[in-house]
Design a protein around this nucleic acid. Structure first.
Lengths: 342, 342
DNA sequence: CTGTTAGCGCGTTCAT
DNA sequence: ATGAACGCGCTAACAG
């Protein structure tokens, strides 16, 4: 393996000057030429472990996320990675398959690997593993899900308000029997559920427990959850699907049981199915579900920027940056207007 | 940051013994205890850069693939990553967005980063960037796509034979006007096309050029390619979709133009849509397309194993390992039986 | 702007 | 089985 010493003897320029050249610092054009030639002739490549040993920088960041096979994450991954790559960072993605323990393991592994920063879309309600990182001086950005009581940079969306507004709108359209399907282990779903509750409460509608179907997404399938509400003796007139899995579940239920939307039931989803890559064809199947749309690209970009800033700025004078991006609402005829019925 | 020196003073055991303990070599149980306690008390974590500097091992491998947002890759990524993780390796995925130049850049970046091994699903026909890695002693496994004339470990499927057999079957079912849609830049599609050609040739059917529609997947959309064949004055009776994008294109065409399969046209695809995660609902829309199915899990596992073997075994006495896994054929009523018509 | 010098934290000789 | 000493390749601090 050729080292900087070889370049030194070959070019006749001293190591440190070469090092400075490599790090983009000013060097006389004479030396620059000699160095460049020697590097080329020897096809020298800097050893990142040696430099990392000195600088404690790996130029690698880690991203820990629930499940890479989701329709939701690959695109985020892509934007994030591109942005980091443009800024000289490599990205290691680890997906924990919605397993809380595995998430913690991945976080620790990456911390031990001395990544320069970490993005975590956590499934855990407790943040000890995150706090350990923070305490050790490792920048962490919480993505998509917050942890209560943990002071940490974060990038999320306005889950509560978006659902509150959407459901309020539906109530104005005459819906009073409103169902909810969602995953019990997600911060996001629980926050969205609160939005739904408050919208109902504010309209003087009391919650009916049989209309609420939380389930562990690993154990129950979303289609069945949806159909459980549909087969109640007094089913809801509108069902809110709290995430993209449950949106898919509703979609499959519609296909499988020949439901006619919104005749049989109105549907609203969080995340628009057809916005996922290679799901565009869903627009051909009518009606497309009304949905709360997340700004995917901006989410990943802001996450990347936040992380980069924290890496540069350091953990001193720590003032958490908490970004909450705005969603938009995409209304369709999947929500019936039933003013006259009531 | 706490180092092995701190553990030394704290435990009273010498560095080298601690190092041996860390590497799983025998140590007296006395020392073991002292070491473990000191490590715990100091919450010492080994510095991978320092050890890497000595051993030239990063315990990191790179994977370079066309596009992470594909329905095809995320799952492969997942299996691969899990397996590597179990074996102590981290994985860096880089997706190059089907851009040949970016692929090369990613390969070089990862090589410079001194990963211990590389998996590449290449879009390039020339393999200079791969050869450079090999020459530098960096193990590479070609995944999904081969490069002609490049001696390299690889894991692929029986593209040629699978298509040859499937098309032969369709010919026996009476099809003689057979169309092809595929991506022009893929090794796989071209190999599959050869299988189709030979099946036709062997049955004495001459190729009709207007039935062949290669296109750069970035520039043209698969739906339009499919419809171009359908709107010919004498359209094919069967269309073979050479990859999952074109399968999706056919699917969207069916939905958008209210095609009835197989009345309007028979369809066969490479890769089964509903086999992708979260595409299961496609089974509810009939008929499901007949398809050649790839053993996704085995593909990624074999790739991981091959890479690991090469990393351990080394590049000396290089005898390329070339795995070609078998696909299976999933027949459905999307292929009409038109024996009587001919 | 340049060259000299001294470690970064660890693994690996050797002796013992 | 253990401990002392050296060096992996590079960067940073210094003096020039």
């Amino acid at each position: 393996m050729t080292t900087i010493m070889d370049v030194e003897t070959r070019s006749g320029v001293s190591r440190s000057t070469i090092s400075r050249y490599l790090n983009g610092k000013p060097v006389t054009s004479q030396n620059r030429q000699k160095i460049e030639q020697a590097i080329k002739e020897l096809s020298y490549r800097r050893n990142p472990m040696a430099s990392g040993l000195k600088t404690s920088k790996t130029y690698t960041v880690g991203v820990v996320l629930p499940e890479i096979t989701d329709p939701y994450f690959p695109r985020l991954v892509k934007y994030f990675q591109n942005y980091m790559h443009e800024n000289g960072y490599q990205t290691i993605f680890n997906s924990y398959g919605n397993d809380p323990e595995l998430e913690i393991e991945h976080v620790k592994t990456l911390a031990n690997k001395r990544v320069d920063g970490l993005v975590v879309a956590t499934i855990n309600r407790k943040g000890n593993h995150i706090r350990e990182c923070l305490d050790a001086g490792l920048p962490v950005v919480l993505f998509d899900r917050l942890i209560e009581g943990l002071d940490c940079d974060s990038v999320t969306v306005d889950n509560y308000q978006a659902v509150y507004d959407a459901i309020s709108l539906c109530i104005r359209k005459g819906h009073r029997k409103i169902g909810f399907v969602g995953g019990s282990e997600y911060y996001t779903d629980i926050t969205r559920f609160r939005g739904l509750c408050d919208a109902l409460g504010n309209a003087g509608i009391s919650l009916r427990e049989e209309y609420i179907n939380f389930a562990n997404i690993l154990e129950h399938d979303a289609t069945r959850q949806f159909m459980r509400l549909m087969t109640l003796t007094d089913p809801p007139t509108l069902i809110f699907c709290s995430n993209i899995y449950h949106a898919l579940g509703a979609f499959e239920a519609m296909l499988q049981y020949d439901l006619v939307i919104p005749r049989d039931v109105s549907v609203i989803t969080f995340d628009r199915l057809s916005a996922s890559p290679y799901y565009g064809f869903i627009q051909c199947i009518h009606p497309e579900f009304a949905s709360i749309c997340q700004p995917h690209k901006e989410l990943s970009l802001q996450t990347a920027k936040t992380l980069l800033k924290r890496i540069q700025f350091g953990m001193d004078n720590f003032e958490p940056m908490r970004l909450e991006l705005k969603t938009s609402f995409y209304m369709t005829e999947s929500v019936a207007d039933i003013k006259e019925d009531s």
